[in-house]
Design a protein around this nucleic acid. Structure first.
Lengths: 204, 204
DNA sequence: GGGCGTATTGGCCTAAGGTCCAATTATTCC
DNA sequence: GGAATAATTGGACCTTAGGCCAATACGCCC
């Protein structure tokens, strides 16, 4: 389980732009992958590889904003740096509102682009960590039986076993059993951990 | 303790723009206050009044982006809608990166502006609620003695009274006393509430 | 039909947390 | 110097939570 090297994925329909960017990034010791269209990227990309996108705005087929939305809908979008020649203010505003980490115009200041890429890669790492944690918690939550999930909800709400028993119409002993299974399945050893975990599941 | 009516604050150095926007907003039953400069706003504004800003970009003295940063530094910035005539892409990108909720260009589509304002006012309400909660929690935390704060940290970390006592070099009985005071001062009646509260204090 | 998972309950025992009352010591404030 | 605050500890007692062993009941799959 090595951590794969981050890759910068450049998507631009202009081959000369792709080559120029690729050379620049390679000279900065970055792994680069280029695509000529959003479709090509969607078909070939491996979401398990960390990194970020450097994305042109105007392209035949799906344009940059469309691709951004398509990726966002999948829930595991990498950070996106827009790099485009003829950008309008509304385009840039939409891109930023939809979560782009940077929006640069050609010709681009090389150090600006490289800084943005390093920040984006770092953000991707953080995002992946958070997604992995959330997935892990969600998986444990999914392993709970319906009854256990009910008990969990009452427990993290701060209720006593006795109160939970009353509300569910069963005896306190049964609550204890469910509660013990919840602690076991959620892999926590204290109530504080349990509350923290369930808080991270929804929010954060 | 009535909730004050939200006010839309329009800052633009062009009087004709101010008047036009003010008329539009008033016809939409919005309370409006106008300022001719960022300085004027900073001197006269009452942060306790909810609402949002409609802010021009290019102005003599502090420009829109400067004002945005100045407000952000104070930590209670209202949502900002930029409305400007000659915007550049980098300006709009910076504005959005620094938290603007919308960035519109003149001449503006009236319904776009009104929608943005309504969203911004709603966001301001939510922001104020969250700030009020955080302030309330921070106030209660500040009421803890140093020792109580130590105990709190260990408690929300899921440690047993016995373990806390060991780590602090005192007996368990004392921990119980501190713990009871923490619960009282934080105004919670369950460990789950306490953990939730302290989680909201830092994050969220 | 038998096995499996889920839900339920019982008894018994231990440990952990919380409460009420009471007391001592150190430090700080007026 | 006396009052107030903070930190500490003791004892007795009660409530909660959790662990261990065991049992019953229901629904579902092969």
């Amino acid at each position: 389980m090595n951590i794969p090297e981050p890759k910068v994925i450049v998507i631009d329909d202009d081959p000369s732009v792709r080559n120029a960017i690729e050379r620049l990034l390679r000279s900065a010791r970055l792994n680069v992958l280029t695509h000529a269209s959003a479709q090509e990227y969607l078909e070939q990309n491996d979401p398990s590889i960390p990194g970020c996108l450097v994305l042109d705005m105007a392209m035949p087929g799906l344009n940059g904003l469309d691709l951004q939305d398509a990726l966002a809908a999948r829930g595991n979008a990498p950070p996106i740096i827009f790099l485009t020649g003829h950008a309008t203010v509304p385009d840039s505003v939409q891109a930023m509102k939809h979560g782009a980490v940077e929006f640069l115009t050609k010709p681009v200041d090389e150090s600006l682009l490289l800084d943005a890429i390093h920040n984006a890669i770092a953000k991707d790492g953080a995002d992946r960590l958070k997604r992995a944690e959330q997935a892990s918690i969600a998986q444990r939550l999914a392993a709970l039986t319906p009854r256990e999930a009910q008990v969990l909800a009452h427990v993290v709400a701060g209720k006593l076993n006795k109160q939970i028993a009353d509300e569910l119409g069963i005896v306190e002993k049964t609550i204890k059993v469910h509660r013990a299974r919840v602690m076991e399945k959620m892999q926590v050893r204290s109530l504080a951990e349990l509350v923290t975990l369930t808080a991270q599941a929804g929010i954060a």
